[in-house]
Design a protein around this nucleic acid. Structure first.
Lengths: 167, 167
DNA sequence: TATTGTTATACTCTATAACTATA
DNA sequence: TATAGTTATAGAGTATAACAATA
């Protein structure tokens, strides 16, 4: 018999554009309050997080990772620098590139922000059971990492402990 | 030991803002091509779909459902009307409201578009195994429906067959 | 000549305000 | 007085183009 998965037909409330849109708006409402005082809000938080976690090696790489334009990245970083959360360093190996490094203040600020953001995320997904939230997070991470061609993290514990050792 | 689910700490690639953002952009790239000729693109498609499926009873309700401003809704509907896909009808019970109804052309157009969009969605999630795609769709739908306070569909087959009978 | 980052500018998208008509 | 829809306008956000520094 026809079903929503195989008939290729009517999508209704499973249409990805709608579900992703609803979820992202709701997420931004919840998280927006937490990040109200962060320079450039959610963008600033994402840049700071990537810098602290050391994901990317230049502003351009960071822009690609976060899906924003390099001209936008400039003033997002400007504001983070002004706020004393990150610093620009010229890459010695390629002096065109700027390596972004977090200040002590930036790392401390991020640690608290990530706790608050995580709590806001859980509020945004509060309608789901705890195990469903975890499943959703993992599937979203797997899909997003595949799209960005990043090796997905198999074991979240490992990754976190790695981060703790680095930090 | 610390883990990503309970320590409330570092988020990395499980941060919802990033995963939802990556996925939505990728989705828009894929689906954007399919909807290039639809008036107002993805917005126009979503409005047309809601009209055909009879979800909402006025432009304002529709705007809330899709998370867009009522002033935007006006010209999205304008373009769909111009394209002959939907019609505005004054609601007899409240003459301030406009009931949107799909034309025959609009219904036929949507049927084909939904097949194409579904295919594009599957391409966007092609890195996930089939059963993981289904799980992700259901969890996203459950979360989004809860946020919008819509009764989530328990059995997708039922919903589709209901739609088929109505259509 | 190509790339990174910056600046200035133009464009697009969205929200605000004011208006009409209905209730 | 309040609400649905429309229109015009202003604002925010984004992309485009031109430039400097470096490869």
């Amino acid at each position: 018999m026809a079903n929503a998965t195989t008939d290729g037909g009517r999508l209704g409330h499973e249409e990805l554009g709608w579900t992703l849109g609803v979820l992202l708006r709701h997420y931004q409402d919840e998280v927006g309050q937490v990040l109200a005082d962060v320079p450039q809000g959610h963008r600033g938080f994402q840049v700071l997080a990537s810098v602290v976690h050391g994901d990317q090696r230049s502003q351009l790489a960071l822009a690609g990772h976060l899906g924003i334009d390099r001209t936008v990245m400039t003033y997002v970083v400007d504001d983070l620098v002004t706020a004393g959360l990150v610093e620009r360093q010229v890459d010695a190996a390629d002096r065109r590139q700027r390596r972004l490094v977090a200040t002590t203040t930036g790392r401390q600020r991020l640690a608290q922000l990530e706790r608050d953001v995580r709590a806001a995320e859980d509020r945004a997904l509060s309608s789901l059971a705890s195990e469903d939230r975890t499943t959703l997070r993992h599937l979203l991470a797997a899909a997003a990492c595949a799209i960005r061609q990043i090796e997905p993290v198999r074991d979240p514990c490992e990754a976190v402990e790695g981060a703790l050792q680095r930090g």
